[in-house]
Amino acid sequence: MSNLLTVSPSPHVHTDDSARKIMYKVVLALVPAMAWSVFVFGIDALRVTLIAVAACMAFEYLIQRYILKTESTFTDGSAILTGILLAFNVPSSLPWWIILIGALVAIGIGKLSFGGLGNNIFNPALVGRVFMLISFPVQMTVWPTNTQSGIDAVTSATPLAVIKESLKNGKPISEIMPELPTGMDMLLGNIGGSLGEASAILLILGGLYMLLRKVITWHTPVSVLGSMVIFSGILWLINSEGFANPVFHLLTGGAMLGAIYMATDMVTSPMTGKGQIIFGAGIGVITISIRTWGAYPEGISFAILLMNAFVPLINTYVKPKRFGGQK
């Protein structure tokens, strides 16, 4: 025989799915929301996205090539994904150099310092985002509004910031609500905010696509959003004038983006469905707590990072249901 036979342990067939394909499926799921962000915030949104993606890939390549001296993996799709998610978490007016710093922190500290893809404890994009938010609070919280609605690129506060500010000043909810965009506007994406916070419906669509292609499971998003609704619902039922209603919480800020794309990051979420539900519930409760009582108007990034830290613990204690019962 001219060519030698191959011998390997079973199984001898393999699914045609791969880590790279998964990454690109997530990217694909994000495309509609990305397009919408360009439509809403103009060419600036595209600028931010491109810089973030290019910077993430470049930093991954450079750090692996020159500092870690390992094989470079910058094309495996994960750096691109981190770049897009990073861009989705910042306002479109952000200067380029802050994006670069964010990308460096996301890739360098958030991912590669832990040992690269698969070993990071925290979601890299969120590490970058939170770093930028704390270091450059002004630039990170100036939100250009919808360029389509006439008032071109005038900065305004996000609905969450408005509600927080007004509540602090003693206004009851019933007086604040008329000042805010309607639920329909928020669903469709006619509100100010970060790139990816614009349209809830497109994010949900992307999420459904990922669910269909089995990139994610329902556990994390449903658990995050469900616990947000339940927790904020309880508060709202206790005092509907002191707390915003659950629908409002669900549709504003990064709730959808966080629940569907950030919390479901495979690397930084638990392995089992049960674990993911616990993980998601933690995120929901912490998010609402920060939104209601914390210093920041929006808290889902912090909530996800906090729960990321619990993932190893959850994985240790939440075991899948064993066949034949526990020993």
């Binding site: 030698l4 036979l5 191959t6 011998v7 390997s8 342990p9």
Partner: peptide, 21 residues
């Protein structure tokens, strides 16, 4: 060589699978 091994490359695993390459 009479064949090619394509499993996890440790001696322990290879020798548990078969006699060798």
């Amino acid at each position: 060589k009479t064949n090619r091994f394509d499993g996890a490359s440790t001696c322990a695993i290879a020798s548990s699978v078969y006699s060798g390459e």
